[in-house]
């Protein structure tokens, strides 16, 4: 009896299962093995293709890109460092040039002063020389002019005397007279 009930239950479940199969093709086991077989085959093929060809290639591309970007960034950093260094060098150079300019200027100034002093002493000497020379000349001229004036004075006096008196005085007396006058008055005029 119990066995019969069990069989009835089994039959019942089987019929409902078949009904489900009619509704749900997923539960139809007819192509299960075929589906599994093709799934394993195709998935294995896909796995081999992907792991052997496509994934390494994509990885390579990504790595390449990362490497290139890193390289470029490094390059840029290097270049900017270099530029900074250059700017520093440039500033240093300018500072040095400024110092040099000041040095050169002061040196030139010193040199010029020295030159001026030298030239000044030379000129002073020359001027002194000239002055002494001129003084000498003047002195000479004074002497000469004394004589010349005396002579002229003698001549004029002799002529004047001649005209007034109509007589000729001897030269020596005129000379003596002029000398006497000139001795008194010479300092007044010369």
């Amino acid at each position: 009896m119990q066995l019969r009930i069990l069989i009835a239950i089994i039959i019942y479940f089987e019929t409902t299962l078949f009904a489900a199969e009619a509704g749900m093709p997923q539960l139809d086991s007819k192509y299960w093995i075929s589906q599994s077989f093709w799934l394993i085959l195709i998935f294995s093929l896909l796995y081999i293709l992907l792991s052997k060809f496509f994934i390494p290639k994509i990885k390579e591309n990504l790595d390449d890109r990362e490497k290139k970007i890193k390289e470029n960034l490094d390059n840029a950093k290097n270049l900017s460092d270099m530029a900074e260094q250059k700017a520093l060098d440039y500033e240093k150079e300018i500072l040095k040039a400024k110092k040099d300019v000041i040095k050169i200027l002061s040196e030139a100034k010193k040199q010029m002063e020295k030159n001026i002093n030298q030239k000044k002493t030379i000129f002073d000497k020359e001027i002194e020389k000239e002055i002494s020379k001129v003084e000498n000349e003047i002195q000479n001229l004074k002497k000469n002019s004394n004589k010349a004036i005396n002579q002229i004075a003698e001549e004029i006096s002799s002529k004047v005397i001649e005209n007034i008196t109509g007589e000729k005085l001897n030269e020596s007396s005129i000379k003596a007279m002029v000398a006497e006058v000139s001795k008194d008055k010479m300092d007044k005029y010369l």
């Binding site: 007819k30 192509y31 093995i33 075929s34 589906q35 077989f37 093709w38 799934l39 195709i42 998935f43 093929l45 896909l46 293709l49 992907l50 496509f54 994509i58």
Partner: peptide
Amino acid sequence: VDLSFTNASLFMLISAFTICLFLF
């Protein structure tokens, strides 16, 4: 054992092929 090529297999193949094409 029935290992026939079915429409399920065909669409698995299409999927796999599309993946390969896309990744290529």
